[in-house]
Structure formats: C-alpha cells, structure tokens
Design a protein around this nucleic acid. Structure first.
Lengths: 236, 236
DNA sequence: GCCATTACCTGATCT
DNA sequence: AAGATCAGGTAATGG
C-alpha cells in the first residue's frame, strides 16, 4: 500500500532499509547477509543480546504472517546474517536474485518488525501496466500461458519472470506490500474511478489495484513512498 | 644459510619431513594435505588438542616471519590438512606444484616450528649457475627481461618460472632457507674469495651468494645439509 | 544417507 | 594502497 493519510496502518510503519538479493541470498547458503551499516543501526547485537549466539528476530509479512529468523554475526566474515528460517521465506515468496527485500518497523513500537519484498522488475512491468487502461494493449507476443511449465523459462528475461510451476501459487507477485488482506477492503477515489483494473500484459491477465499517488507521510520520506508509481500494482 | 658449525642457528633445527606439493596443495582448495604418517608423528591431534576443531600451528619462515595455519583432520577424506593461512603462504612464496615444502622443528624446544620450501628445479637452475663464473655464459636466448610481465609466461617451463609481476620481489627464490637477513652478514672464506657474484642466467642478472660447502653439523644430517651443492645460491 | 543449519574461509571489490 | 566488506564458497553437524 502506498503511504496514505487515510490508512492508519501505513503511518505506523517506517522503512529501515532494503537490499537487492544476491544469488547467494536466495541460493543454497540459506542465509541473508545484512549489510553491516544497516545491521548495526537497526539490529544491534553487541550489548543487546549479551550472548554471541545471535538472537531471534520476528517479522510480520504482508499478510500478517509472522516469520522468525535467527540473526547472528559471523566472526570470520565479519558479517551479519539471517540464517534459520530464511530459506523458508525465500521459498514461499519465490524470491530470486535481484528481487528486493524490504525491512520496516513500527513507528512507535520499534520492536515490531515487518518484512516485505518486491520483484526486481516490478517497476518496468507496472510502468507498462500503468499506461494500459484495458486489455490486450500489449498484444500476446509472449506465447500462451498454459505452456509455461517453469519459472526458469524466464530467468534473465529483461522484464519479468512471473510464472512458477510449483505449488498453489500460479503467479509470482510483483510487490508484497500491495497484496494481502490489509489493502483488500480499501476503497479509494482514483483518477479512473474504480480502484481495480484488469490489465493484459505480456499475454497475462493481471488484476491491478490502482491507488492514488500521495505525498510521503513523513518529512523524511520513506522507501515505500519513494516507489510511488511502480508499486501501486499487485498481481494475483 | 648452510649448515655451518659456526652458525648456532643451524644446529638448533632438525628436519621433520618434506612434501612435494601437488597441484591441489597450491591450487584453489587452499589447503595442504599432510601425509598421515608425518601428521600423526609430528602433529598429533587426538588426545593432544582435546577438541576436534583442530589447532593453530605457528611456523617461522626463513625470514623469521611467523605463519599460523589451522591444522585439522578432515573426516571425509581421512586426511590431515593445513587450511587457514596456507593460501597466503603459497601466494607469498610463489609456490607451484612440484615445489617442495619443508618442515623443521627446534631440536630442544619441539614446540618451535619452522617452515621452508625449495623450488622443484632448484638443483637444475643452480647447477647451471654453479658452472657459471661470470656473466652471459648462457647467452640471452630467453628474450628480454622488460617484456615479461607475469609469471604465467613461465608456467610449465621445464626449469624455472621465476618472474613475478607483483610487488617488490622480482625473482622467485629457488630455496627459502638460503635467503633472509640471517645470512646477510656472514663472511666466509670461499674458493672465489668474494662471497657475492653476479650471474647472468636465462637473460637475468642474478646476484649469487656463494658459500662454501661444509659437512653436516650433526651426525644425522638435516634437510638443509643434504642440499649441499644445489642450494648454495639465493637470488634477489 | 540427505538435507538444513551452523560455522568457517577467501577473493574480488570497494573505499 | 591497506583495510573493510561481502558474495560465494567449503566443512562439520544434527536431524
């Protein structure tokens, strides 16, 4: 969801940082390296936990689901990492290298943490979708949907690889913060009137939830508020 | 330095073992496999260290510099290895497959360890140099010096690859135990009188420090004393 | 044994 | 240019 004064939930969160996921972050190493500057600013370990075994950090995702990760410092590489639990998150969210992981916290209750993500190419896709009032404006030059059996087909695609062959999810979402129940019931006045549109893009029928661009809710701005246009869409 | 009764430093060391380095020993595996017989004889791990994390072994090199290596047992391969620190040593000494690594220890203080090395072809090179009283006896059929930018040019050379493009060292030494400050101030009576010579070898001007062959200083001999002729030269 | 997790380790890159 | 960082590894361990 966009920063929106009418949505109290939005104002309660402030961004901490985001990271472009590396192949290692989503690969078999089962760990996310947290850049030191951010780790030491937001998740201090030294005198905080007392012990050197790290600690458990819990984050809420876009659906309210809670994710706990072991957070620790690796002496040898001098780096901060999320380990246990991280690979499950990567798998559920279908994260790939280049996707972006977002960390937020509650504005007043700093112990309440949020985790989110968006696709590496969300901006490009949404930009196309944003100029697209109806169906089939892009044509159907990507081939049929049914024949795509795996996401690997679209690895390295300059726009988006958004098909997965596994599990119940058929589409990878482009941006988690705009999915889930929190925004489902919102009704907003938009330029186009209805806040939902069907967009046909690269041969896919996509439902877009268009929300007005709003100014940042805080003077300092936020990661989310800086993603005005591109993040106004989510796909099911 | 040669084994020399006048040099008390020599008498303080005894050889433990040596190993011809394999490609893996000097490659990207960043480890040196220590033959089990020698490992268990000289670096016992079992009841010695108590833990199974291996231990840190520190060795002095030919210049007195201390090198610490992690030493441990790999259950998978059932082998003893030096790991952490080893690749730095290989790099600094410019070791290649076929070169020989030497381990010594203090005769009375067995905890004091020494590490050294010699080139696989040291004997060949030095033999050539030893028959070479002056300059240019070998001609200059190797091409000019200035054009050699890296040792890779001489990888696989049957005699010696002794150029490196980095840092202050221009030549790979042929035998570490004969370099360093310890021998610098020694003045010895030699056949030729002056202990230093300029030798031109493969188009290189080399300064040789000629030292008299001396009998081994101990009845058991030593690694060093067994390398009488070929190892009497060192190059800067 | 396989897989997930933890704990090392290192080179390339950046500062 | 020396040090810090971190992406990408390996090895040990536990389940």
């Amino acid at each position: 969801m966009e920063p929106n004064p009418s949505n109290p939930l939005e104002n309660e969160r402030e961004p901490m940082f985001e990271k472009h996921l590396t192949p290692s972050d989503v690969g078999k190493l089962n760990r996310l390296v947290i850049p030191k500057q951010h780790a030491e600013k937001y998740f201090p370990l030294g005198g905080d936990s007392g012990d050197n075994q790290g600690l458990l950090l819990s984050f809420e995702d876009e659906s309210g689901k809670c994710w706990s990760f072991r957070y620790s410092y690796w002496n040898n590489s001098q780096s901060y990492v999320l380990t246990k639990g991280w690979s499950r998150y990567v798998k559920e969210k279908q994260l790939d290298a280049g996707d972006i992981i977002l960390f937020q916290r509650h504005r007043t209750d700093g112990d309440r943490l949020f985790i989110g993500w968006r696709r590496r190419d969300a901006a490009v896709v949404v930009a196309a979708a944003a100029t697209n009032g109806g169906n089939d404006a892009m044509g159907d030059n990507s081939g049929g949907h049914g024949g795509w059996s795996g996401r690997e087909l679209y690895r390295g695609h300059p726009y988006l690889g958004y098909i997965q062959g596994l599990g119940a999810n058929v589409l990878k979402q482009a941006d988690c913060f705009h999915a889930g129940s929190i925004v489902e019931d919102q009704k907003q006045a938009t330029r186009g009137g209805n806040s939902k549109r069907l967009v046909r893009l690269f041969g896919m029928n996509l439902e877009s939830h268009q929300v007005e661009d709003s100014p940042p809710s805080t003077p300092t701005g936020s990661i989310l508020s800086s993603q005005k246009g591109p993040t106004t869409y989510h796909f099911y």
